[in-house]
Simulated scan of single mutants.
Amino acid sequence: MTALLTILVLVFILVAIWQMVKIFDLSQVGLSENDQVATDKDNSLNGYLMIGFLAFIYIITIVSVVKWGDLPLLSNAASEHGPGIDNLMIISLVIIFIVQTITQFLLHYFAFKYKGEKGKKALFFADNNTLEAIWTIIPVITLAGLIIYGLFTWTSIMNINEDDDPIVVELYAQQFNWKARYAGADNTLGNANVRLIDIDKANILGVDESDPNAQDDIITSELHLPVGKPVLFKMRSQDVLHSAYMPHFRAQMNCVPGMITQFSFTPTITTAEMRQNPDMVDKVAHINKIRQENSKELVAEGGEALDAYEFDYLLLCNKICGKSHYNMQMKIIVETEEEYNAWLKEQKVFKNSLVTN
């Protein structure tokens, strides 16, 4: 109720201010000094301001390119299709940069060059089919090229080659954590439904206990992937719309309640190798420097020092799914096939993980 009253008061204040401005404008009618018609001096001032703003735009752009233009995010793709996605992004950025540079210059320069002057009448064309064709056809060709390139890139990613025999893994989303379910030795996931969830028996994903394909499934809280092996992810959501986002693998797919979505990729860089990436080494060092500074303040206030940060691939939720959305993540470990197989052997299969009464 208090919030409603506050909003109403603010609305009434704004209406009152608007009415006062209108009254002031009416009271100034007939005064030569309040003609409200732009003079040559006004037009000249605005023309120079436009040039000044153009210079500001270019200075900010140059500073940004010099300081942050190395685009390290586009140099650490860890999946086979990642470079293709990065290439599409770079091409789009280059085209946008060129178009923005040219159009902003023309916009601001023409505003200055053709500013209003007393006795000067602008030359204009009421209709020019050639100009209209040019500024219509060029954007159409450019956008069509980007869209077609993007569609081919997307199709090449989403077309799963069954001959590659990908490892099948389910990503199960719920507020506010992830679970991974591996298909086991038969590489076939057992049937599952949220209506089959039985907390008392530790069947937290609603896996069908009577399905033979489900008996060797493996449920984990950490995602391990073998390098160089294609992985097919089947995605489910227990409650609301989530989005499985793995930034270093250039992978993202919504997890929709009531249906199964999928995405596949082949990891190309192990976690250990990515930790040695020069860009990643610099990033980790920068993060730990900040953490050390924050730790001093925490210790001074009687708290505990922050642990040193170490890089890990992460599975994140990229949809705002609730109050703890920011903390919905799962570690991804990319390792050699031997390390992956050794880890997999240590995991308990579904039939042995159920709690019997």
Results as ranks from 00 to 15, higher is better:
206 G>Q: 03
130 T>N: 08
60 I>S: 13
123 L>W: 04
212 P>D: 11
271 T>N: 13
189 L>P: 07
253 M>F: 09
221 S>G: 14
213 N>E: 13
54 L>H: 14
330 M>E: 09
167 I>E: 06
247 P>C: 06
110 F>T: 05
204 I>K: 08
109 Y>W: 15
310 E>T: 11
214 A>K: 10
339 E>F: 04
10 L>M: 01
201 K>G: 10
351 K>C: 11
112 F>E: 12
197 I>A: 04
92 S>P: 00
232 L>R: 11
156 S>R: 07
114 Y>H: 14
63 V>I: 15
159 N>V: 13
138 I>G: 12
252 Q>Y: 14
83 P>F: 05
325 H>Q: 01
301 E>A: 12
351 K>D: 02
258 G>R: 10
266 T>M: 12
292 Q>E: 07
316 L>V: 00
275 R>Q: 12
189 L>S: 09
235 M>H: 05
40 D>L: 05
79 S>H: 09
183 A>G: 15
203 N>L: 09
30 G>K: 09
321 C>Q: 07
146 L>G: 02
296 K>Q: 11
259 M>T: 15
92 S>A: 03
39 T>Q: 02
190 G>Q: 05
31 L>N: 03
10 L>C: 01
265 F>M: 15
248 H>M: 12
264 S>V: 04
249 F>H: 12
299 V>K: 10
323 K>F: 11
281 V>S: 02
188 T>M: 10
24 F>T: 09
215 Q>M: 13
133 A>N: 11
149 Y>H: 08
288 N>E: 09
128 N>Y: 08
331 K>P: 03
51 I>C: 11
23 I>Y: 06
204 I>R: 12
234 K>E: 15
7 I>W: 01
173 A>P: 06
336 T>N: 05
107 L>E: 12
137 I>D: 01
245 Y>G: 08
79 S>Y: 02
93 L>I: 08
307 D>P: 08
111 A>D: 10
280 M>L: 04
75 S>I: 02
279 D>G: 01
111 A>L: 04
90 I>S: 11
157 I>F: 08
164 D>S: 15
229 K>M: 06
211 D>G: 08
206 G>T: 01
194 V>F: 04
132 E>K: 13
116 G>M: 07
252 Q>W: 14
222 E>V: 03
40 D>Q: 06
98 I>M: 11
335 E>W: 02
238 Q>W: 10
237 S>K: 07
62 I>R: 09
193 N>L: 02
74 L>C: 02
225 L>Y: 05
50 M>G: 15
351 K>V: 13
133 A>P: 09
178 W>R: 06
283 K>H: 01
21 V>H: 10
170 E>S: 13
110 F>E: 02
265 F>H: 14
184 G>Q: 02
145 G>M: 10
97 F>K: 05
263 F>N: 12
44 S>T: 14
21 V>I: 15
245 Y>P: 10
310 E>C: 07
209 E>H: 10
352 N>K: 13
72 P>Q: 00
245 Y>W: 11
17 I>L: 08
321 C>L: 06
184 G>T: 00
223 L>P: 03
208 D>Q: 07
84 G>L: 03
137 I>G: 04
272 A>E: 13
9 V>H: 01
69 G>P: 00
275 R>T: 06
22 K>D: 11
356 T>H: 15
266 T>A: 09
2 T>I: 00
19 Q>V: 06
192 A>M: 08
280 M>Y: 00
210 S>N: 05
194 V>T: 11
29 V>A: 12
